[in-house]
Nucleic acid binder design. Structure first.
Lengths: 309, 309
DNA sequence: ATTGTTCATTTGTCGTGGACAAGATCGAGT
DNA sequence: ACTCGATCTTGTCCACGACAAATGAACAAT
């Protein structure tokens, strides 16, 4: 079972065993070992039983590498560069643009760790704009720029955690405020195992609920089989899946196709999110939503096609 | 990278490669291979390149096994029983006790997949009892009995997902409703990597906020180093960590001790949750909270010890 | 009766290297 | 500009040996 919390460590400078590194970097054990074999990095110390002990600097460099690889760099080209070269690569990649001032003001509060005012700024934006605009404009751009700031190291991991929690609070608060009795269509909302990003899912739920659909939200990481079983149980008309850009496009399409094979014909499948934003054509029987605009249109279309007699 | 969603499959009856099985069962590839070697199950077909291809029945039996093992059965004893024997084991596991009627009524709605009324029943309970009693009584017992019903197979995985989402909606809604300006102490709230249960964390946040503390919630799975860095950034007085019964007690204690070594003396560490409920004695410099009562007492004590001049 | 200790067994994770599929890159040809 | 195939790169899979960590049983001590 993969529920170890263990971190090997002496009091002062700690070392991480290979499982801890896999957790903290997202690089599989196989990958870590094969990198060591091929490129000579990371070359961890060994404990008394010849098991790998990674140091904190190694772990930090691995995180940098992961980031750059996600961004399109090839491992072999960058793995033996120094940490400073890598950070330079990251910052040089960042676009010259700056976020719009109202977004920047909010990010500024996050950077100052001013929890109360950060929360209030978000709430005020929501009040001022209404749920739909708040989600489709403010939250979308906030996500983008905070991701950007994280890449360049301006925003720490815990800041991003905090941001995610607060957005969740606000979105869930907005969702629960909606009535949503007997609405159509009934939409099952979730992501496949491996996809952990909750915010995209909540944004969709907020918009759909606001547009009068009935959402059955299952959170993240529902195995395909369980989705298949949930569809008849909750009598849903549509299954909507979210894929953040942390997953590859091909993986997302494969998951969608897999699900299509398992579900009844009448049930629609919608897929959206960063991983699919640039997808060319949809697999048979699947609707790709490249924007919130697309989604509202899809909703409209469903309703026209399923008019009550 | 472990973000493959790929599933190998022909249109009709699909087979799953070892990565897909790892995802859907939570059993690591190493475990799957060593079970095959030792016990002869699961013995998957091989593709043209000698790679394992698991069938759907195998996958389903693996999920049953996982369930029983989580409950305390030993793999070696049950792995070669038939599926019907295993399901029998699960249903015979059902405890003599039954949940109190008001809890049972709510669970019944979940079993009927009656989303709207389920939501309303939860909201009504909250209104009737107030936040504190709702969390410490209703949610606590609901968690317990739904976990129980899941073990006996009465509640499906997707039902539990749905339950978790709704509880989150409600708790976060309650949290955001509180003012919380300039309160003390400032409490950082999170869990360590590997601990994914969010509900316990949210329950604590709800209670603490209601009691007038200022919570800085980082969600689940924050690496120790990031906690260490967050403490000065957010100027917190207390770090509170939650450990569900999915982790072992020793792992929880190790994590707490590890953290203690990294944080400044003045910062308190509180640990709570299922894994620690039966812990004997706390490590040096750590406060174990075995109940919500304990937590309110700890809060009281902190305030007395840090009286404003 | 509960708690601590010791010892044997079970079980999951780690190690090694070899192999190869799937992806990425690049050049040639339409 | 674009497919197409050849070529390199990279992650995942395999086998199987070893052993640490978890569990259970047996027993002593409080």
């Amino acid at each position: 079972m993969n529920n170890t919390l263990s971190i090997v460590g002496t009091t002062q400078d700690l070392s991480y065993n290979i499982a801890a590194v896999e957790r903290d970097t997202g690089l599989s054990k196989d990958t870590l070992r094969v990198w060591e074999r091929r490129y000579g990095f990371p070359k961890p110390l060994r404990d008394r039983h010849d098991e790998r002990l990674y140091s904190l600097p190694q772990l930090e460099k691995l995180r940098l590498l992961r980031l750059l690889i996600d961004y399109g760099h090839r491992p072999g080209k960058i793995i033996n560069r120094s940490v400073s070269e890598l950070t330079q690569l990251i910052s040089s990649r960042s676009p010259a643009q700056t976020p719009p001032p109202e977004i920047d003001a909010i990010i500024e509060l996050l950077l100052r760790h001013d929890v109360e005012n950060f929360r209030n700024a978000l709430l005020q934006a929501l009040m001022k704009q209404g749920l739909l605009r708040f989600v489709t404009e403010t939250v979308t751009t906030l996500n983008h720029w905070i991701g950007e700031a994280w890449l360049t190291g301006r925003v720490a991991i815990f800041d991003e955690h905090l941001y995610s929690e607060h957005i969740q609070n606000i979105l869930r608060n907005a969702i629960i405020a909606q009535p949503g009795r007997g609405s159509v269509p009934r939409v099952l909302l979730t992501s496949l195992p491996g996809e952990k990003h909750r915010i995209g899912l909540l944004m969709v739920e907020a918009v759909l609920t606001a547009e009068g659909a009935a959402c059955v939200a299952l959170g993240t990481e529902t195995p395909v089989i369980d989705i298949k079983n949930a569809v008849p149980a909750y009598a849903v008309d549509v299954v909507a899946l979210s894929f953040s850009s942390a997953v590859t496009q091909s993986a997302a399409l494969a998951g969608l196709t897999e699900l299509r094979g398992l579900l009844a014909e009448g049930v629609e499948i919608w897929g959206g999110g960063g991983a699919l934003a640039r997808a060319r054509k949809a697999p048979e029987g699947i609707l790709l939503l490249r924007s919130f605009e697309d989604m509202r249109y899809a909703l409209e279309r469903w309703r026209v096609e399923h008019v009550r007699r």
